[in-house]
Amino acid sequence: MSGWEVFLQQLIIGLSNGMIIALIALGYTMVYGIVELINFAHGDLFMLGSFLALTIVGLCTALPVFVVVLLLLTLTPLFSGGLNWLVDRLAYRHLRHSIRLAPLVSAIGVSFVFLNVGLLWGGVPMDVFGLGKAAAAPKDFPVLVSNDNLLGDATVQFTAKDALVFVVTIPLMIGLTWFVKRTRTGKAMRAVAQDQTAAELMGINVDRVVGQTFLIGGGLAGVASVVFALYNNTIYFQMGYRAGMDAFTAAVLGGIGSLPGAVLGGLCIGLARAFSDQYIATGWTNVIVFTILVLVLVFRPAGILGSKHREKV
């Protein structure tokens, strides 16, 4: 492989991973935009989604692959969206008027609960693939989407998996933008994000809108978890933490609260990871991502696309 081909290859890998990170980042950014909560449990929600996906795959071996993938892409988002909604309903909603750190601490608690559920879930025997013996061990996710190069014999690989990532994520992002910009619910969301009290005075049911935001954000994490599992073919119960941190960094980098910002940030982080893996060293990649996070927060807390927002007193 020549230097250019290596570069192109890492570009493809970075963009594919970046799109997945962007999907998770959208969930962070939507929730933060509306209730100013860093939803710490979001990464672990993503992890649980991938465990559900593995279970579904284990149960549906008889079905053709195409149907299984479609099934995954509908059931998993429903599950993780519903779960996210439920957590908001049971835990965060009661803390909206509590001390400022209360929802964040509560979200850390939820993240720990999810982490533990993931560990136990990993211990459930998923017979079809003979998994589930060692609960904490990474699980192989079966290769449903082929690894064949779509570019024929070229050295640079653009596989069906890469294609899947873009085919799933891009329409979803366009749909989300349309939803937030054009529909009544989307308008209500933007109103609540801008000024909760004013929105309430206009007859918007704030709690419901917040719930819907959690539902959609969770659903996006569900899609991301399926795509991630199909793309990387391995899942483990601690992956939510790393994925969550990458996505949060992406959301902050792009400008928290901004949807295009989250996508842009996701792509930047995906590329940064890929190039750092290739040109620096894998061991330093996380350090680099976190350094980016710290630097962005210190020097440009509004992010790349975020608007300057004066702190309310």
């Binding site: 850390i108 559920v117 211990g123 609960a135």
Partner: peptide
């Protein structure tokens, strides 16, 4: 062979619940 029976495997669940319930 059964992860559910080891109390250590429920540790984070309990810590997490403690945080959530305390905050609530």
């Amino acid at each position: 062979s059964n992860v559910f029976t080891a109390p250590g495997n429920w540790k984070y669940l309990l810590f997490g619940l403690a945080l959530i319930l305390m905050m609530r």
